[in-house]
């Protein structure tokens, strides 16, 4: 894909850094105790209510098979088809991302991660929020 310069919210989950387009990132939240949903996959940590809305929290580490520590912070994505919170160990802030945006994998969650790209001297995987959302809707 073509190289572009766009504002992204850069955050880490486990040891990996991710970047989501700033316009998709609604806010960074600190989520309360989650409610587990029976029969839900393990990367779906649970849901929490946020401004009258039920937000599911997805653990990117479990989704990508990465190791990660526990965190209470998440990046809330607001998409056309609904909201979604992604766990974030650290949030670096809004940065301009440069680099290629080729899919990092052929299947699974990695087809919705692109790169290689850099943001604020970090190697980041640029996320396709809609693709990820669809992937999750189909059961992960």
């Amino acid at each position: 894909m073509s190289e572009q310069l766009q504002s992204h919210l850069v955050f880490s989950s486990g040891n990996s850094w991710y970047a989501v387009p700033a316009d998709r990132a609604a806010e960074v939240v600190s989520f309360p105790e989650l409610t587990r949903v029976p029969g839900a996959p393990s990367h779906l940590l649970g849901v929490f209510a946020h401004r009258g809305e039920v937000i599911p929290v997805v653990d990117l580490c479990q989704l990508t098979g990465d190791k990660g520590g526990e965190t209470k912070r998440a990046v809330l994505l607001r998409l056309a088809r609904g909201a979604l919170a992604l766990t974030a160990s650290k949030v670096a802030g809004v940065s301009l991302v440069s680099g290629k945006l080729d899919p990092l994998g052929a299947g699974g969650v990695h087809q919705h991660l692109r790169g290689p790209a850099k943001a604020a001297a970090n190697d980041v995987a640029v996320m396709d929020p809609e693709g990820l959302f669809e992937f999750l809707c189909q059961g992960g």
């Binding site: 700033a22 806010e27 960074v28 600190s30 802030g93």
Partner: peptide, 26 residues
């Protein structure tokens, strides 16, 4: 401080979304 950080982060995010208008805010 954590809440301040979060607030600042979200403010920065909002400022960024507001484009040039929100740059100073960011």
């Amino acid at each position: 401080a954590d809440k301040s950080d979060l607030l600042a982060l979200n403010a920065e995010l909002e400022g960024t979304k507001a484009g040039d208008v929100g740059r100073g805010f960011s």
